[in-house]
């Protein structure tokens, strides 16, 4: 005996919602990684304006003016080929081989909140570049 129509419809809807949720998380992680990579690559390429354009407003405000020059003085490594990106709500963490980058969502997409971060156990990361 086949399942009633509403049961099959409910199963289909559940599957669609679950797949949409997975796709959404995957897309957001990918977008966060892209934003972090763009920032670190801009610094590595010496493209100060592009690097500063990838920063969150409060983070950019904390960098000595002019940002486009000061950001290049920070010892930020170029992004590694692979990275581990994790997204929770409005925040993301992207770990490259030699750097960890924190990001947040803004209306135009992910922006870098902190970079050049090294772990300190239970205490917050120590970051070369960070907002308030």
């Amino acid at each position: 005996m086949g399942k009633p129509r509403f049961v099959r419809l409910a199963m289909l809807l559940t599957t669609v919602v679950m797949l949409a949720g997975c796709a959404s998380v995957g897309e957001r992680s990918s977008a966060a990684e892209d934003a972090a990579r763009l920032f670190l690559q801009a610094v590595a390429d010496g493209d100060g304006p592009a690097a500063c354009g990838a920063l969150a407003p409060e983070t950019e405000a904390r960098i000595d003016a002019p940002c486009a020059e000061s950001i290049l003085d920070e010892a930020l490594p170029a992004p590694s080929a692979t990275a581990d990106a994790r997204v929770y709500g409005q925040r993301a963490l992207v770990k490259f081989d030699a750097d960890t980058v924190f990001l947040a969502v803004f209306p135009d997409g992910w922006r870098v909140v902190a970079a050049g971060c090294t772990p300190r156990g239970e205490r917050p990361y120590d970051c070369a570049v960070q907002g308030g």
Binding site: Y88, G89, R91, A114, C117, P119, R123, P124, Y125, Q130
Partner: peptide, 15 residues
């Protein structure tokens, strides 16, 4: 855990 990790990242801490 997702809400907690969002706060952890806001505070620059490990999820």
């Amino acid at each position: 855990v997702a809400a907690y990790n969002e706060e952890q990242l806001r505070d620059l801490q490990e999820p």
